[in-house]
């Protein structure tokens, strides 16, 4: 899942960045690329953290998991704010690039669901 998610988000980020360059020019395109990089990093962090939560479910306290997620969210917001406010990233382009997180995740989820359905059908056919 981790590889698939990161691959989907990266591809979506590349596509959206290209779209930003084509439709919005250099400023929007660069901002879209920055948004795409943030999306890929966020996807990686989410996947890593979710795996830690799920695998360490026996030992990991619920409250601690929530704190970890909250801390990650706070760091992410700070980075985004710094990018927008200090380093002059265009908000529109950044939003476009960040869309890679949603698109990539949804694509990865759908792909996985389709693969699981195929696997189940094949298993049923084999049993039959």
């Amino acid at each position: 899942m981790k590889t698939r998610t990161l691959r989907s988000v990266s591809v979506a980020a590349l596509m959206l960045s290209a779209l930003g360059f084509v439709l919005g020019g250099v400023s929007i395109g660069v901002s879209a690329a920055v948004g795409g990089i943030v999306a890929v990093l966020d996807a990686w962090a989410i996947t890593w953290l979710a795996k830690r939560i799920v695998r360490g479910a026996g030992a990991l306290d619920r409250g601690f998991a929530a704190v970890l997620l909250g801390a990650k969210l706070a760091i992410l917001l700070s980075v985004c704010w710094a990018l927008l406010a200090r380093w002059g990233v265009d908000p529109l382009g950044f939003s476009v690039g960040l869309g890679a997180l949603v698109l990539g995740m949804l694509y990865a989820g759908t792909e996985l669901a389709v693969l699981q359905t195929h696997a189940q059908r094949e298993a049923q056919t084999g049993e039959g």
Binding site: T47, A50, V54, L69, G109, L112
Partner: peptide, 8 residues
Amino acid sequence: VPLILGLA
């Protein structure tokens, strides 16, 4: 998988 999707 749904957890990752939800968090994202």
